[in-house]
Design a protein around this nucleic acid. Structure first.
Lengths: 340, 340
DNA sequence: GTTGGCACTCCTGCTAATAGAGTGCCAGTC
DNA sequence: GACTGGCACTCTATTAGCAGGAGTGCCAAC
């Protein structure tokens, strides 16, 4: 059974009204609010078909219809024209972001901005380590047998780590280590570094071998295993908009999910460049979030991606608006990073 | 009107029962559950007095009594013996914290641990900049006119900042700047640095003056103004325990408050060394949190304080247990920092 | 000072009745 | 064949009324 244009129009109307009013929408109300040019009875017939196809459902007999996840999906895929942001919104973004002093600040501002504009929970991933390149490695003597290793990446991120040395080091040793390490690794993408670290040890003369081995193992941890990604979160209070109606009665599972970095990373990870992804309801594969939708986008200078960002809200959300905002913010942040 | 011992005992019983059952407690239930050695009628008389004094109240006539904020206050001040942590809890703390690799990790583990043990929302303040000392300042050339300034403190915290130079710098210049800056500032408490930065500029010869001025202004920002404190948060899902009953129906105001760093800092800031502070209900002076209590404690190596930590929950919370846990965790983290 | 008794209040839960919204279906119309 | 108006039907939400119960305050007695 194919859906003709009018049925699609009915679906769109249902989604739009439901998103706005938060109440099941009936045939009469539909024809009143949208000029469909047909009678309620006709709409009812269309609704029956849409329901049979699984795009809408009735909470109970004799209630209006509510879109299903599949209905939202169809709406997003075929019925959504992304509206460009209003000039006011564009200005809001710029006003909000201008004056950011460092990476931390950029990320924090971005996440608050997203939460504020979309009125949903916002998540921003810090520029991922594995996709950045090493800008500089610094070794700072803390005591004679301890070094602080500081790595600075081209996205402005800084990681530090304490290194215990096997024996005491002289000032000159530190100098030499620093030179060698930077010579080999500076400018390299983190993902490419492990074999280089290996050669670093091999090229060492016996006298410095032990020290370098020690340093290398911490380097590897910092560079690779510790690609542990950082996240910023904002706007959790927005979950309470719409009362207890969204999220089937309790915020608990949602709040729990939001505390798991792994889950959040899954939600906004693995994105295609320059596209915005929408996960509706249990498409996100996470049990606690089956009544939530996620709109996410990768960001980075040019067409590369160094991280993801997105928002999470009830499946009953304003998709066109949210998509437009997420996309715009992602672009803006990308451009911002490109400038550095 | 003074409260004799039995009346205090009645108050204690009311608080304990109410915290446990979450329901107003009546005179009959009280004598059943606690061996007070008197009849319900007597308890009723005591209750009438306690109510008149403002320590308990009735949600409505013919309901049991509920403690007021003042009642909790009295309970905490005069009726609470801090129970030492069980060995199991002690072990839990150690097991949880062991293997923390850096400051970030310590803070994150601590905040999750606190949330898990107390079953409330936990907040941990990163070791405050202004109370730490400079361990090392590093200058990393990014381009000929740009430097990355990295500051490492004795609590392991690292701050970075980009500095735009007035003109191109040679390798030797950077070297010289680094030497001077560290000579002057390393080892100093951040709070004491501003005048030193000033002399740093003054001692400069004319050739380097402009550069140093530029660097100094960023230094001041980083060292002082940017004492902007960082925070970690965990356990927001715990707010939903106890259903909608706590927090008078909606989590909204609480979630909103938790997003404001300023508010959180106020809650866990300004603590006396080695003490645990309890703020009950609107004692915290924050409108959104009038139905919440905060138990907080300063932490740091020895008797100094480098930051605060604490938990936030409904006024109806297990004060003795929470206080004990917060105190124990604060001590543990302090000891951990002392080891470095 | 303490206690038992008793009338009173107010919440809670249950049932029944009503109003309203929305549907599905059918027969009629264009 | 598609659309429409009408109508019976179903289910929810709301309201009122009523009984049960918990808990109190007060009083008189110990």
């Amino acid at each position: 059974m194919s859906l003709d244009d009018r049925k699609l129009e009915v679906l769109r109307a249902i989604v739009e009204d439901y998103v706005e009013t938060q109440e099941p929408v009936g045939s009469k109300a539909l024809v009143d609010r949208h000029k469909l040019g047909v009678s309620p009875a006709t709409v009812r017939n269309d609704m029956a078909v849409l329901e049979e196809e699984g795009y809408i459902r009735q909470p109970h007999t004799s209630a209006g219809r509510v879109p299903t996840d599949a209905g939202y999906r169809l709406f997003v895929d075929r019925l959504t024209k992304i509206k460009p942001l209003s000039p006011a919104e564009r200005r809001a973004i710029e006003r909000f972001m201008v004056g950011a002093v460092d990476l931390d600040d950029v990320v924090h501002r971005t996440v608050r901005l997203l939460a504020q504009l979309t009125r949903h929970v916002a998540v921003v991933q810090y520029p991922s380590l594995s996709r950045s390149a090493v800008r500089h490695l610094e070794l700072v003597p803390i005591s004679t047998t301890r070094l602080m290793l500081v790595m600075i990446t081209d996205t402005g991120r800084v990681e530090q780590r304490l290194v215990e040395m096997p024996g005491p080091l002289a000032e000159g040793d530190v100098w030499e280590l620093r030179r060698r390490v930077n010579e080999k690794l500076a400018g390299q993408r983190l993902a490419d570094t492990p074999p280089l670290v290996q050669t670093l040890v091999e090229e060492c003369d016996a006298g410095r071998r032990a020290t370098m081995t020690c340093l290398a193992s911490v380097l590897l941890e910092t560079l690779v295993e510790r690609s542990e990604e950082r996240l910023a979160l904002a706007g959790t209070a927005n979950l309470t908009r719409g009362g207890v109606l969204d999220f089937q009665g309790t915020l608990r599972p949602v709040l729990e999910a939001l505390e798991e970095e792994v889950i959040l990373l899954k939600l906004i990870g693995d994105l295609e460049p320059r596209t915005t992804r929408v996960l509706i309801g249990d498409e996100n594969q996470i049990d606690n979030l089956r009544s939530a939708s996620v709109v996410s986008s990768g960001y980075g200078p040019g067409t590369t991606i160094v991280g993801g960002l997105g928002v999470l809200g009830p499946t009953r959300m304003d998709y066109p608006g949210t998509i437009a905002t997420v996309r715009a913010v992602a672009r803006y942040v990308g451009d911002l990073l490109a400038q550095n």
